[in-house]
Nucleic acid binder design. Structure first.
Length: 265
DNA sequence: TATAGTGTTATCGG
DNA sequence: ACCGATAACACTAT
């Protein structure tokens, strides 16, 4: 289940295995995943063309077509991009963060593109929280969390009374931070997730920006959010890997949140 | 068996 | 208008 690093990995699958292949059919019949498009609308727009570039900002992916619409792809919580060859064998994608799915299992394919050579691109998404749409709105997304500058971050973080974690999870503020990444960032920055943003000192705000950047860089470089130090300890009874205190647990920003009572203030 | 969950969006109420 | 909480989506893991 993807956060920014896993979505970047899906983008590289698209770039490596989907670009420049002529599309001969598309299955867009899942009306929930493909909303608001009626069945057939996405297929009509894509058949006969090809994908020419794969982009990402935060957790949102999109592909260009020559002179045609942009194909927007969001993986949601359980989506992944899997490429199969003409014999149905998986040749790219699908090998990360999943619910024990076996290669070649396309029961939960919610959208697919058939290429002229017999290859197939699948959006495999058991929970149907992912989304496919033409010309997705991208303007509301904040800057990518791997690239955001201190000035942009400070401006978009704002000075409301909202819990700092709720602001980090808001994709309009910064794009790409999910629940695990947010807990890791606040743990590294030494901030309690429930702290109101308007109570942060200038030094704490600067430290938070630097920690966003370094944590996302680490996760990208090391192969995903699971490689971050706090993440394996985020469970009831888990202890802080820095000082061994039992982690606190609460709902913050609508999501289950863990933090260390010893070093997060 | 019951519950929680790595995401987003619409809607409701303060 | 801003902000936060909640439900919906549907399946898997504990």
């Amino acid at each position: 289940m993807p956060e920014l690093p896993e979505v970047e990995s899906a983008r590289s699958v698209l770039e490596r295995s989907a670009l420049g292949r002529r599309i001969v059919a598309a299955d867009d019949t899942d009306g929930w995943v493909c909303r608001p498009h009626p069945p057939g609308e996405i297929a009509l727009a894509l058949v006969g063309t090809e994908l020419t570039a794969a982009h990402r900002r935060g957790k949102t992916l999109w592909c260009d077509t020559p002179g045609g619409p942009v194909l927007g792809i969001h993986l949601g919580m359980s989506g992944k991009i899997v490429i199969a060859d003409a014999d149905g064998r998986e040749v790219d994608g699908g090998d990360h963060w999943e619910f024990g799915r076996q290669p070649g299992d396309f029961r939960f394919s919610r959208f697919s593109l058939d290429f002229a050579d017999g290859g197939v691109l699948h959006l495999v998404d058991p929970r149907r929280l992912g989304r496919i749409r033409l010309d997705p709105p991208l303007d509301a997304l904040g800057p990518d969390a791997a690239l955001v500058t201190a000035a942009e971050f400070g401006e978009r973080l704002g000075w409301s009374r909202a819990p700092v974690k709720a602001r980090l999870l808001d994709q309009h503020v910064v794009a790409g931070i999910g629940n695990l990444l947010a807990d890791e960032i606040l743990w590294r920055a030494g901030l309690v997730p429930g702290r109101p943003v308007d109570g942060l000192t200038p030094a704490e705000r600067r430290r938070l920006h630097r920690t966003v950047r370094s944590t996302v860089d680490d996760a990208l470089h090391d192969g995903g959010v699971h490689t971050l130090p706090l993440v394996p300890h985020r469970r009831p009874g888990g202890r802080c890997p820095r000082d061994d205190a039992e982690l606190c647990r609460a709902t913050v920003g609508g999501r289950t949140t863990f933090w260390c009572p010893a070093h997060q203030r």
